[in-house]
Design a protein around this nucleic acid. Sequence first.
DNA 1: CGCACTCTTGATGGTCATCAAGACGGGTGG
DNA 2: CCACCCGTCTTGATGACCATCAAGAGTGCG
Lengths: 239, 239
Amino acid sequence: MIERHLAKLRARHSVSAEEAAAIASAIAEVRDVPKGRTVIPAGVRLDQSTLLLDGILARYKDGRNGQRQITELHVAGDFADLHSYPLKHLDHDVMTLTPCRIAQVPHDAVRELTRAYPNLGRVYWFATCLDAAIHREWTFSLGRRTALARVAALLCELLVRLQIVGLADDAGYDLPLTQSDLAECMGLTNVHVNRTLRELRLRGLARFQNGQVTIDDWAGLAQLAEFDPGYLYLGPQSE
Amino acid sequence: MIERHLAKLRARHSVSAEEAAAIASAIAEVRDVPKGRTVIPAGVRLDQSTLLLDGILARYKDGRNGQRQITELHVAGDFADLHSYPLKHLDHDVMTLTPCRIAQVPHDAVRELTRAYPNLGRVYWFATCLDAAIHREWTFSLGRRTALARVAALLCELLVRLQIVGLADDAGYDLPLTQSDLAECMGLTNVHVNRTLRELRLRGLARFQNGQVTIDDWAGLAQLAEFDPGYLYLGPQSE
DNA sequence: CGCACTCTTGATGGTCATCAAGACGGGTGG
DNA sequence: CCACCCGTCTTGATGACCATCAAGAGTGCG
């Protein structure tokens, strides 16, 4: 059940079989949530964290006039709100962008995990810092990349993150989002995302159609995006 | 020496005198760095973290054509790269925007602190999550706020953060940055920041002159910025 | 005194938002 | 089975916001 989560962790650290079993047994409940639901509301005190088993979640902040900014996408294997363990409540909402299967892990269980297995304590602290690294990359995207490079960079990031958990190959991946979802990620309008995707298609770099991303020219796409996967901290972290 | 750091921590958690003494004794070295220096380069393996005692630091990412995006500002009392403890190296650079006084804390000392004082382990994990919360707010700013609201929001954030460490009062604070520095924070050009600051001044909201920020109308500024300090997680975190 | 950096203002233009309308597709109900 | 509807996608027209380019003024420092 937690294979994708383990794959994500093991892309950066070693996790023993015993630790893996401890993580698995920390899960209190598994449930399915349809798309478009708020899974974790802002400001509410939390006593458990949400591990995403399948589907896509978004963290977002709303503005006054109904504009929404997604600050991070989560894919299968991600702890969507591990940071709620130290923070106790969130400053933003988390919602499903697709139907999702999620596992609930009580904070008490997280505490016990990190106490009994200090290695997991470091691994999970690392995981929250990795989210911060992704936030920084998006900040860079929004501040300094053109719309075209911005969308390209998002497609690149998702390819790498989905490959880690076995949900993408070099040719592409499923991404059952709308163009409006992408717009809310990248600080654009759905109209402009539409034109940007057309441009990527015309340039022969990538296609986003029917909830499917097809990478036609990875090198060209990565160059256009100035994509450097360093911020995803892949490969074993030397200790 | 670490009063401001303690003030920051104690704005959210209780820290005992014994813990405070342990933090103080974890400092290996203190040094002064002139402005414009890279304190922590990206990609280099680190075995210590940098506590900012005085001055202003910036984390930033550079693009290919020399455009720079600052992803976070650090003020006195912040651990600038506590996340390098779990991450081992950074995906971005950290530089001084003003002359700074910094303290070096070896990662071994951090490990010992968090081992001997589990409360500090939670407090420091929290601190890295707080940085992520600030990243998210900036992402929202860059994606959804106009230049005017964006600059206003930055001035609001800095007022609150500097007040916590006793470096601001309701009337304003010292901010010895250039308009170009602000531009690199907010994804703008120095020219447009200049016009934006003039607009804030003409509206009677705030002034940024001679390295000094003066708040003329806090309520008006906060409203323009849609500033909600919730993301700074002030007040004691219940636990 | 001269140089470098910052600030300031004007003129022009590009990128992307906004507004509008039609096409397409899937799901629902008559 | 077809009509209808709603969400999504697509394209065009227009314009706002902010970038770019340029030039001069102010300020501090060697």
